[in-house]
Write a protein that binds this DNA or RNA. Structure first.
Lengths: 219, 219, 219, 219
DNA sequence: GATGAATGAGCTTTCATTCAT
DNA sequence: TATGAATGAAAGCTCATTCAT
């Protein structure tokens, strides 16, 4: 039986300096733990472990638990800007085509980034972190709802859509998207059979557009 | 020695705090605090204060914080049975009429009872209380979704609705209802102008039905 | 060997309610630990142990370590008022008689109360707790020094004492008293033979008075 | 490759930080921080910053915080030897002249060297570092007190001074000096008007000598 | 039963110390 | 040698739970 200490080769160093990467790694780890357990139930220990550092390290990069939480939400919201830059909507398309495109683009972004983890967190912590909720409302919800409402209104004005309250319609169109995201990170694990998210999204847009249109596609 | 509260005419006090109401009062208080702050961030002190008892009293009726939480969720889910008993759907109506009725009935129930406070709680605590989530899924979500899916399927079979995946359609119809509830107990306080919930619900059913119908109402 | 649990008689209760006495007991314990170790080196655990309670109990009566410290210093300073009430100086006596009396009275008070533990604490924590130091200065040092200076001045005016700066003289008269106290609670344990405090005080007053007088007692 | 720091004219840099000065610089910085905050409340980070090095560097020269502290006190005590070498007392002078000289010499040394910072530190940390306190007692306090007591005794023997306990008298003569030093590094910042230290010292020696003398200077 | 003082386990945070760079 | 990121033991503090009153 060989003596452990005699092993010739590479002793893995006890730790490594990762000054530049750490904050991001910690925030990523923290986001997932906060998402799963909620802010209060999350122990810094869990985050540290997931980020493969020790508790103390967290305090090198963030002043405290709250600061870590806020930073990570802010960081998440910040990703929206990047998304906006790369997403352009066809200008002359009909309203239903724009909606189709928007929903799919948005979903692609929401479904595949940390950004999509925010809704569940925001909803859970809304009253405990009012300032964050307000920021999310102002920077994410309201602009998104506005964009959707504008397209709906455009459709109404063009005679393509029925006359409805455009803002309410926008909320209703967006609700299933958010619900799907929130569900994904909470109860969906308890579904008997997994949700086919894309089918859900497709069915949703079709029904929505169909519901809005004055003369539906089916003749 | 006469009871101070005794009204002039009768010897029966009009209102008396029955010993057996204590647990109910505590659960009501607890529900609201858990709803606002989440399970972990809620201090029993807060609940006690809201229920106008002291911390110690909570432990007379519930073995611990977790038991109080579980009890209150179970109690909430239990209300569903009472609701089911009193709600009957017209048997011969057309699918869209049934949907219209169901959504309004459900919303009336959800919007005005403690039952409607559960979704936000379940979503926030889903992973921390898997057994509760499972119970909610089995007793509430799946049956409700099934009922809705059955009506949709009935509409499809009758040629009233387009051919869609009835279960997905059911989810989509229910999503805005739950979203509205969840929103009400989290971020809605941060809306610029308050949501008119009934307009939202009405617009939603109309669009949904319109979206499903083979030949929409507007000719 | 008897089973512990079978012991018939008085099981000492795990704890007892002492709402009214606790704060004082805790402050007394804390004063001694702070005096011995200094503020920063004192662990709440030590205080709790000395006060025969657990750490948690400290937080029932004081919001945090700092609050406990401040409270206890304030409490200590407060004792001065009680002392002042009971100490009267003879009005017509000669200056040297008043000094004699004052020093002895003061020393009796300083040497036998918690009040006398403050100087060492104040000096050690002066820069860490500037507000406390200021309070001690304004409420204790300056008034005390003023009283002594007034007597010295009276002696000078009456031709009994040499002409010196009365305030400086007051400081010098008080210095050995404070030094003795500070020493008592710090290095005196390391003296080869213990200090005879009363001899020290007596010698000091005699020398001081003798030093001040225009014509000394020895003919 | 030429040294960047090399001055134009000479190859010898005008000023170079000698390797051997590091420990001294660190101890100087540490002394001041320990003096201000006390041992436990001092963070090595603060010392490092004041010494213009980083935390890690401290551990190159000192094995740990305690070692740094002990070293610096020992170093301070060591200065006493140098002082003793250069201070000679006139052998044939009268006792009161020697006292006058001694006090002034000692004060000059205490007031202007790091040595004078020790008393406050020793008093504050006496019980936490008994060995240091003992060392200070044996090497500083007792010899100093002995010297003073010897002079007083000499005065008594010569009939110049009253008969008092020489050791106690020595303590009393020294007390205001130490008190002044301790005060300077603690509460003196909170005095309404700054203390004129030399006036204080002068008044003190005069009063002390006057107090001791059988026949005072003022006839 | 009801109360709330007291407990103690557990979490956040600090900081002396180590060690990869 | 010097640095400072990373560690981890220890301290302050919170709060669910117990239990004397």
């Amino acid at each position: 039986m060989p003596d452990k200490k005699t092993e010739t080769a590479s002793h893995e160093p006890r730790w490594r300096r990762r000054k530049d990467d750490r904050p991001g790694e910690i925030m990523d780890a923290a986001l997932d733990v906060f998402l799963e357990k909620g802010y209060a139930a999350t122990r810094l220990e869990d985050i540290a472990q997931k980020a493969k550092v020790t508790k103390g390290t967290l305090f090198i990069y963030f002043t405290n638990k709250e600061d870590l939480f806020r930073s990570l939400v802010r960081e998440g919201i910040g990703q929206l800007a990047a998304f906006k830059d790369q997403s352009h909507t066809d200008l002359r398309a009909s309203a239903h085509e724009i909606i189709l495109l928007m929903v799919h683009n948005w979903w692609k972004f929401l479904a595949n980034s940390n950004f999509g983890k925010l809704p569940k967190i925001i909803i859970s912590e809304a009253t405990n972190f009012p300032d964050i909720t307000k920021m999310y409302m102002d920077d994410v919800i309201l602009p998104g709802r506005k964009m959707m409402a504008d397209v709906v209104q455009k459709g109404i004005d063009a005679g393509e859509f029925q006359s409805v309250d455009a803002e309410i319609a926008a909320r209703i169109i967006l609700a299933p998207l958010f619900m799907l995201l929130i569900w994904r990170y909470s109860a969906s694990a308890f579904e008997k059979k997994p949700i086919h998210e894309l089918d859900y999204i497709n069915t949703h847009v079709n029904l929505s557009i169909n519901g809005l249109q004055v003369r539906p596609a089916t003749p």
